[in-house]
Amino acid sequence: MEPRELVVISGKGGTGKTSVVAAFAALAGGAVLADCDVDAADLHLVLRPELGEPHDFSSRSCAVIEPDPCTGCGRCAEVCRFDAVSRSPDDEYSIDTIACEGCALCMRVCPADAIRMESVVNGVWMVSTTRFGPLVHARLGVAEDNSGKLVTHVRKEARATALREGLPLILADGAPGIGCPVIASLTGAHFVLAVTEPTVSGRHDLERVLQVVRGFRLPFAVLVNKADLNPELTEAVTADVLAQGALFARTVDYDPAVTAAQVAGVDVVTYGGRAAAAIEEAWNETARALAVTEEGDVSHA
């Protein structure tokens, strides 16, 4: 059976996306968990998995200049558009490995064949075991290009794991923002839950990320976290998103138990409290919406 994939995103960071995913993991009764926030992965901190075997991930290469054949002609520096080639005072050329994007143009134009491309390990990924199901997670190397390729890889492994273990659902913790990693989290997913907060910035960022979601024509719903912080804005955001086609909008009031659960290293459902009850209601509605998207999804038949 084709597993269904729910992606939780937020636009703005720090709205409680990861806490919601961990809570959903506890409620789902068997799902594959995918941490797509590879730039700052945190899901493992509350799911406390038994770590799986780490695998290197490489999605780019970097130029290397061999000093011997190099004649110092400077052609590489001329063609590089990323300011990645520098010349030392004694005319030795070298590559800034952080600035290099791996286009290999310098290698191709070097008249002395002094440049070669080396593949760069720019991340690590693993399939770990949690009490709620397998967790596919990864870590992008510091200062690497979050091109979305590692996110795509995490999702591919999550799908393979779901098929292998016969699990019907993938719960993905998406990345903040609207760029590559978010686009890579959404491509081919079935349902999106956007977690926001009733602040001027939360509203602004939600609007932008929902434009991306609508561009993909994905069904979506919204969870307004810390709703009691600004009830007027919560109401306005709720009305906005329903008008934009959200299947539902639910609210969760601020509850110190959410942070307390994180400090205790557990999900908020296991920890308990008011927010846990509200998140459980949101989960029930999400599960119903996922079932509906499945029925309506005849194109995959």
């Binding site: 720090g14 730039d39 700052a40 901190l45 200062a143 690497e144 994180q262 400090v263």
Partner: peptide, 24 residues
């Protein structure tokens, strides 16, 4: 985050102020 757009933003700074909250 810690990836490319962050690098481009902080490159050349005299000091980087890292904002955090005291949670795991």
């Amino acid at each position: 985050g810690t990836s490319c757009p962050v690098i481009e933003s902080v490159r050349g700074a005299d000091l980087v102020v890292l904002v955090t909250e005291p949670t795991p």
